[in-house]
Computed example of a mutant assay.
Amino acid sequence: MLLAAATAALLASAGARAEDVGCVNTAFKLIGPDHKVCVEAFTDPDIPGVACYLSQARTGGVSGWLGLAEDPSRFALSCRQVGPITLPDRIDRQKEVFDSATSILFKETQVVRMFDRPRNTLVYLSYSTKLVDGSPMNSVAAVPVMPWTETVR
Rank of each mutant, 00 (worst) to 15 (best):
E108T: 06
R58V: 07
P147G: 12
P136A: 05
F75W: 06
N120K: 05
V39K: 04
A8H: 15
S13M: 06
Q81C: 01
A9S: 14
I47P: 00
K29F: 02
V111T: 10
A101S: 09
M114C: 07
T129E: 13
T102S: 11
M137Y: 14
D71Y: 00
R119M: 11
R74S: 05
D116W: 06
A141W: 05
A57I: 10
M146K: 05
K95V: 11
L125A: 13
I31G: 01
G60F: 02
A5N: 11
L54H: 08
V123W: 00
V62N: 02
P84F: 06
P33C: 08
P48T: 00
D116N: 07
P84G: 15
T7F: 13
P45N: 01
L66E: 13
T7I: 05
A69G: 03
G49H: 06
V82E: 03
L105P: 01
K130D: 10
A14L: 07
F106R: 13
D92N: 01
G83E: 03
V145A: 11
E40Y: 14
S13V: 11
Y127R: 03
A51K: 15
T43F: 09
T109A: 04
T59G: 00
A12T: 10
S13I: 06
L11C: 04
I91K: 04
G49V: 08
A9P: 10
G15N: 13
R119F: 08
A4N: 13
